[in-house]
Design a binder for these strands. Structure first.
Length: 240
DNA sequence: TCATTAAATTGTT
DNA sequence: AACAATTTAATGA
């Protein structure tokens, strides 16, 4: 079985390129950056590796530099519920970090990923000293609230095409996941796992969305042409 | 840098 | 779930 907390194993300081990709980095003042940099670590997570687990104490605030993670929770009955996919640029866990509580969910890598971690003490220091950082966190919390609400809606959607469309819209969220850009690197198998459908059905749904001009299916990823269409349009539910 | 081979991903049944 | 076709990544000259 996969080992947990990979970040604690193969960790290293972030490269200049990795730092530039961190969404809250640019707004920081020089002395704040200095502080943050000293507390930043990155590590590789292999598929199946846990970045954090339910009940573990919080030591880091995590962000996705590269790759793809999934946030899930194990139900009392044993079934697993997936809340969200976490593409590059996504930072998560601020809620539990703020309260210094144990994690309430599991986050594991769907594929080989690079994960960054900011130590909890420095997170709090930035919260106490940086207005820009506060603004980022506040914005982040607000956006994520909206995402959880839409996650519940997505769960109720029965039509697979619409389901896939909404899930994709969530993954392409420009505020929460600024690292994604035009093309989301995700395989159809990974998306199927995330959405809870068979790869076969996801493939079919993607083809439909492609045909409608909302996305373009590419090898190993997807290009979004019309985010608004994914988010809101009613993909005319087939009428019998 | 190019050609060859292996691995990953996709499109279909 | 299994298969074939296609694309990418890795290897070595």
């Amino acid at each position: 079985m996969s080992q947990d907390l990979t970040l604690h194993q193969r960790r290293r300081p972030p490269t200049a390129e990795e730092i530039e990709g961190i969404p809250w980095w640019a707004p920081l003042q020089p002395h704040e950056r200095e502080r943050a940099l000293a507390a930043l670590l990155v590590g590789d997570a292999l598929p199946g590796d846990y970045v954090c687990r339910v009940g573990r104490p919080v030591t880091y605030w995590f962000g996705v530099v590269e790759g793809l993670l999934k946030m899930s929770n194990d139900n009392a009955e044993g079934s697993t519920m997936t809340f969200a996919g976490l593409p590059p640029g996504g930072w998560f866990g601020e809620g539990t970090v703020v309260k210094r509580e144990p994690y309430r969910y599991n986050v594991q890598a769907l594929r080989k990923s690079v994960v960054a971690g900011l130590h909890i003490d420095t997170f709090h220091w930035l919260l106490d000293h940086s207005i820009a950082f506060n603004r980022f966190v506040m914005h982040q919390l607000n956006e994520r609230l909206g995402q959880f609400i839409s996650a519940r809606e997505i769960d109720r959607i029965t039509n697979p095409d619409v389901r896939v469309a909404r899930s994709l819209a969530a993954l392409f969220h420009p505020v929460l996941y600024p690292g994604v850009g035009d093309v989301l690197r995700i395989t159809q198998q990974e998306l199927a796992y995330l959405v809870g459908l068979s790869r076969q059905r996801v493939n079919e749904a993607l083809a439909a969305l492609d045909a409608q001009g909302a996305i373009r299916v590419e090898y190993g990823g997807l290009r979004v042409l019309d985010l608004e269409a994914l988010r809101s349009r009613d993909f005319q539910v087939k009428k019998a």
